[in-house]
Write a protein that binds this DNA or RNA. Structure first.
Length: 339
DNA sequence: CCAGACGTTGTT
DNA sequence: GTCTGG
DNA sequence: CCAGACGTTGTT
DNA sequence: GTCTGG
């Protein structure tokens, strides 16, 4: 079953694509571990390549499907293993994710010195913008501001509210920051210099636009779950900011709001000139420096984050139940049964 | 000088 | 269509 | 990211 | 707060 056929089937598409027709101006190389697409040349070993219109330029690897090869959660297309890095049709960013670990798990995993979490952390299978979520950051403790940075686990709100914002609802639009520009954007640059954090996740969701259209003509989207193959923690790169609520008195517990955003990047990959967005991650070796607020040089900081290594993620389609933020539970990351 | 923005992804 | 809320 | 709401002044 | 556009 090819990726496109699988997704269209999942979406219940009535209009079928031509899954076998090969466009005149494409080639698709397939070997055991990688595939690439290029305009204008023939290629042996091409199976099941399709596209609704000719390729425009190198790197435009839009609508194609691949040969059956592996067996992943009942699906037999290798693209399912690497879709995030190999298909132009899955636009990876980060708009929903999963945290299964307890506060104790996270404290242990990240070696935090202070657990500034005052409620019980339940596993969250549907973390959405504007919701709170645990993060790891390093700064002087509130009660000893002259001391050195201390690594802490805190619960912050997703969606960065710049310090100068008049209205905090701007945060619901600032859920991602582009790595390419985060050091210069007025809304992000200050935080990038001195307020970086790690968002611990178990994995994240992406929505794949299928061939089927809604009555208003928009593509029906199939959610996928992406997670590390080793099922370990996925440490996303983020920044945070403080915002003073002018309507609250100084001594009010809610006088300050602390929010964060997730940094995204082009996924570099070994598959071709692909330009998907993905969340940035921080490898374990770089956790300390990433969190260190005394490292301020943008080039130095950029060197500390990277996309998930090629081939390190597993991905598979899941129920559309995840669409609604009211739904939550382990069933959201159950692989959707093959149709 | 003041006014107004300050962000991302998606889409054919 | 566009914005807000989760 | 998706789901769900979306509204005011004028007064033909 | 800080930058851009007028």
């Amino acid at each position: 079953m090819t990726l496109l056929r699988a997704c269209d089937a999942l979406a219940g598409a009535k209009m079928t694509r031509d899954y076998s027709q090969r466009p005149a101006r494409c080639k698709l190389n397939v070997d055991s571990q990688r595939a690439s697409a290029h305009p204008g040349r023939d290629s042996p070993g091409v199976v099941g390549l399709q596209r609704s219109q000719p390729f425009g330029q190198a790197g435009d690897v839009g609508n194609y499907s691949r040969r059956v090869r592996n067996r992943i959660h009942g699906y037999t297309d290798p693209v399912f293993q690497r879709l995030s890095a190999s298909s132009g049709r899955l636009r990876s960013m980060c708009g929903r994710y999963v945290v299964r670990q307890s506060a104790d798990d996270l404290a242990e995993e990240f070696g935090v010195d202070r657990v500034e979490v005052h409620e019980r952390l339940e596993p969250d299978y549907n973390v959405a913008p504007t919701k709170t979520s645990p993060v790891v950051l390093a700064r002087p403790p509130r009660d000893a501001k002259d001391a050195g940075p201390v690594r802490q686990l805190r619960v912050l709100t997703w969606g960065l509210v710049p310090s100068w914002a008049k209205d905090p609802k701007i945060g619901s639009r600032l859920i991602n920051a582009r790595a390419e520009t985060v050091h210069e954007k007025p809304a992000f640059r200050r935080a990038f210099g001195t307020r970086r954090l790690i968002i611990p996740t178990s994995g994240f969701y992406e929505w794949f636009p299928t061939q089927q259209r809604t009555t208003s003509g928009k593509p029906v989207k199939q959610p996928f779950y992406l997670r590390p193959k080793d099922e370990g923690v996925l440490a996303l790169a983020g920044i945070y900011e403080f915002w003073r609520n002018p309507d609250k008195p100084r001594d009010d517990d809610d006088a300050w709001m602390t929010t964060f955003t997730i940094i995204t990047t082009n996924a570099t990959d070994d598959v071709g000139h692909i330009h998907d967005r993905m969340p940035m991650t921080v490898s374990r070796d770089n956790w300390r420096n990433w969190l260190d607020p005394t490292i301020n040089d943008p080039d130095d900081i950029h060197a500390l984050m990277a996309p998930p290594p090629a081939g390190s993620l597993d991905l598979y389609p899941v129920s559309k139940a995840v669409n609604n933020v009211k739904n939550n539970g382990p069933e959201l990351i159950e692989p959707l049964p093959p149709s």
